[in-house]
């Protein structure tokens, strides 16, 4: 089976003043379609940077990133934007919903940007699956953290992306909401075959994944299957 994500000697170097800081140092990894991967590691080890580079939000400095066969390192900004639109869904720690729009608007805008227009069937399926059908007319400020994160997940998967990238999605949630969100991610993975890469500090969260990658100092130090 061809990997959905493959990185080869992936480097990301940031310029901080006059100093170069390497956030990724030759990362090698592969993610197969339908896998649920957790990436763990201490703060500053490069987890989020890896997610941004895989998702096309940031450009790699060196090496290769293949996403569904597309080499992101050779793509222009516009091409990476197009790729994100069609193949990637993001979920962030701070939910990042648009405050002016209600839950429905926040999900629908992703469909609009995707360009295929509003698909009511897909919309109903996703919102029912995430249990937010009765909260669609509420603005983010009127929703609990768990509800906001479920809206954010709905927005991320509404266009059936090839991969869902979740950057510490439970970092701002209480235990109960965290479990709910993690169960949702596992359900999406199990029921819909959604490929998920989850960044987390929390070993309990990582236990929902098939495989855990540990990072340290910009490198993947091991990849342990979860029993």
């Amino acid at each position: 089976m061809e990997p959905i994500v493959k990185t080869e000697d992936l480097w990301k170097i940031y310029r901080s003043g006059k100093v170069d800081v390497a956030a990724l140092r030759g990362v090698q990894c592969e993610v197969l379609p339908g896998e649920f991967i957790a990436v763990m590691g201490p703060s500053g080890c490069g987890k989020s940077t890896l997610l941004h580079v895989i998702g096309g939000l940031a450009q790699a400095t060196r090496g290769r990133v293949l996403l569904d066969g597309n080499d992101l390192t050779r793509m222009s900004d516009a091409a990476r934007t197009m790729l994100r639109r069609h193949k990637v869904g993001f979920v962030f720690q701070r939910f990042n919903l648009l405050p002016a729009l209600d839950a429905r608007g926040n999900i629908a805008i992703a469909q609009h940007i995707h360009g295929d227009g509003f698909d009511p069937h897909r919309f109903d399926t996703v919102t029912r699956l995430l249990g937010i059908s009765d909260r669609l007319h509420h603005r983010p400020a009127e929703l609990s953290g768990g509800e906001q994160q479920r809206v954010a997940i709905a927005r991320a998967i509404i266009n059936e992306p090839k991969i869902l990238l979740a950057d510490e999605p439970t970092g701002n949630l209480d235990t109960k909401s965290s479990e709910s969100v993690l169960r949702m991610l596992r359900k999406l993975n199990q029921d819909l075959g959604q490929t998920v890469i989850l960044i987390t500090h929390n070993p309990e969260a990582a236990s929902y994944a098939h495989r855990v990658l540990h990072m340290r100092d910009g490198q993947i130090v091991d990849g342990i299957p979860v029993d």
């Binding site: 934007t81 639109r85 069609h86 805008i109």
Partner: peptide
């Protein structure tokens, strides 16, 4: 941040 969100969703310039 909203602009960042739109970009993460694939919104063009």
């Amino acid at each position: 941040r909203d602009i960042g969100v739109l970009k993460s969703l694939g919104a063009s310039k």
